[in-house]
Amino acid sequence: MRSWWTWCPTSQGALQNAEARILSFIKTKFEDTTVQISNNNKINTVCINTEMGKRHIPLVMMHGFGSGIALWVRNLDSLSKSRPLYCFDLLGFGRSSRPRLSNKAEIVEAQFVESVEEWRKAVGLNSFILLGHSLGGYLAAAYALRYPSRVKQLILADPWGFPQRPTTSDLSRRPRVPVWIRAIVFLMQPFNPLAILRAAGPWGMPAHAFVSVLV
């Protein structure tokens, strides 16, 4: 029996096995596949009831930050009863590719939106119902604004949102943020907030389970 103090191993194989264990709870027959897009990137995808074809509008589901396909495991059976269903790992999440993204917000948004459009073309969908959760809600809205003809209905579940950037006059009326808080924010900018899970060692699995419960 492996000691609890053993360093928590990570690999594509371990990730695939963990995902397979979670997806085993799906009762409906499904296909776990990889969709190739540009720049040799791939998007991990689960498809259910695709044989329904054009008779019903497909449902496409986009997960949120720090999540993946497995987020939907308790919903997939019921949501796929009357229509084809597709869910996928966004780039940088789950078993999808982890390309280098821009550090500029507008460009990153465009990179995600275009990856979804490339995925749509590769899968062969003409139009669909798009459901996004959290960060996926933000990206789903961004996609719908860029490609409105592809989205029959847009469903946003606890979506992210960003207010308009304040003007100089607005900033002068806001309470001044303490220097120590601004220093912490500046120092944390280069780091992925989920990196702590990767570095948690023997506490990796318990920590990940705790974060999963919160999410």
Score class of each variant (00 low, 15 high):
2 R>I: 13
2 R>N: 11
3 S>A: 14
5 W>V: 12
10 T>E: 14
15 L>C: 09
21 R>T: 10
22 I>C: 05
22 I>T: 13
23 L>E: 12
24 S>E: 08
24 S>Q: 09
25 F>N: 15
26 I>Y: 05
29 K>I: 12
29 K>H: 13
31 E>W: 05
31 E>I: 06
35 V>Y: 05
36 Q>A: 15
37 I>P: 00
37 I>S: 00
38 S>G: 15
39 N>S: 11
48 I>S: 00
53 G>M: 08
53 G>E: 12
54 K>L: 12
54 K>E: 15
61 M>F: 08
63 H>N: 02
63 H>S: 05
64 G>V: 04
66 G>Y: 07
67 S>F: 06
68 G>E: 01
73 V>I: 13
74 R>V: 09
76 L>D: 00
76 L>S: 02
78 S>C: 04
81 K>F: 10
85 L>W: 00
87 C>G: 02
87 C>A: 07
88 F>Y: 08
89 D>G: 04
89 D>Y: 12
90 L>M: 10
93 F>A: 02
94 G>H: 07
95 R>L: 15
95 R>Q: 13
97 S>Y: 01
102 S>W: 00
103 N>V: 03
108 V>P: 01
112 F>W: 13
113 V>T: 03
114 E>P: 04
114 E>Y: 08
115 S>Q: 11
123 V>M: 09
125 L>N: 08
126 N>H: 11
126 N>L: 06
127 S>N: 11
128 F>A: 01
129 I>M: 05
130 L>M: 07
131 L>Y: 02
131 L>Q: 02
133 H>C: 05
133 H>P: 01
137 G>N: 04
137 G>R: 02
138 Y>N: 01
141 A>N: 07
142 A>V: 05
143 Y>S: 04
147 Y>F: 15
154 L>C: 04
161 G>H: 13
163 P>S: 11
163 P>E: 14
166 P>F: 05
171 L>G: 03
172 S>G: 05
175 P>G: 06
181 I>D: 05
181 I>C: 06
182 R>L: 11
183 A>G: 08
186 F>D: 09
187 L>W: 10
190 P>M: 06
192 N>R: 14
197 L>P: 01
198 R>L: 15
198 R>S: 10
201 G>Q: 12
205 M>F: 13
205 M>W: 15
207 A>P: 06
215 V>S: 12
